[in-house]
């Protein structure tokens, strides 16, 4: 039997989400702060990323050699890893909030949240593998084998 979840109206008259009140738990409060802190960081990270990839360079010239040159500097790997992590968590947590607005039963919410969590893990591992293992002239398989041999 499905349990109905009572929800406060999430949307204030001004299009923003009120800070979770008593009863929402520490998790929702953390989530609320995380949106704002990661959001501010992402403004800088994403806009600089867009300017580099679409303004100072044309996207079609961001070739293999372009990436090789860029990733010779570990700064850009750390930059991209930060961007990947924050964007995925901010975005999928946003999708969780959207789903919670439409799904009112506890079981379905849990199922959807599990899928979102696994999606986050899968795509984070995929992106992280690409960023960390990239070595010019080597395929990802060769890079991973090389790492294992050391």
């Amino acid at each position: 039997m499905a349990t109905r979840v009572t929800t406060n109206p999430k949307v204030s008259p001004f299009g923003t989400t009120p800070k979770p009140g008593a009863g929402s738990g520490a998790w929702e409060t953390f989530s609320w702060y995380f949106f704002r802190v990661s959001g501010v960081a992402l403004i800088l990270l994403v806009i600089l990323h867009l300017v580099i990839m679409h303004v100072t360079n044309d996207v079609s010239s961001t070739t293999y050699d372009f990436v090789a040159h860029r990733y010779a500097n570990p700064f850009w790997r750390v930059y991209d890893l930060t961007l990947l992590t924050l964007a995925l968590l901010h975005g999928l947590n946003g999708l969780r909030i959207v789903c919670d607005d439409y799904i009112r039963t506890r079981g379905t919410r849990l199922a959807v949240q599990s899928v979102l969590f696994l999606t986050a893990v899968f795509f984070w591992l995929m992106g992280t593998m690409t960023i960390i293992t990239f070595q010019p002239g080597k395929t990802v398989a060769a890079s991973i084998l090389g790492l294992l041999h050391h």
């Binding site: 975005g91 946003g94 959207v98 795509f123 992106g127 593998m129 690409t130 395929t139 990802v140 890079s143």
Partner: peptide, 20 residues
């Protein structure tokens, strides 16, 4: 937000091709 998230997931897949 949902549009950017969708692009992000596609983008993670397309950059993975650099490993090939």
């Amino acid at each position: 937000g949902l549009g950017v998230l969708l692009f992000l997931l596609v983008h993670i897949v397309d950059i993975t091709l650099i490993g090939f």
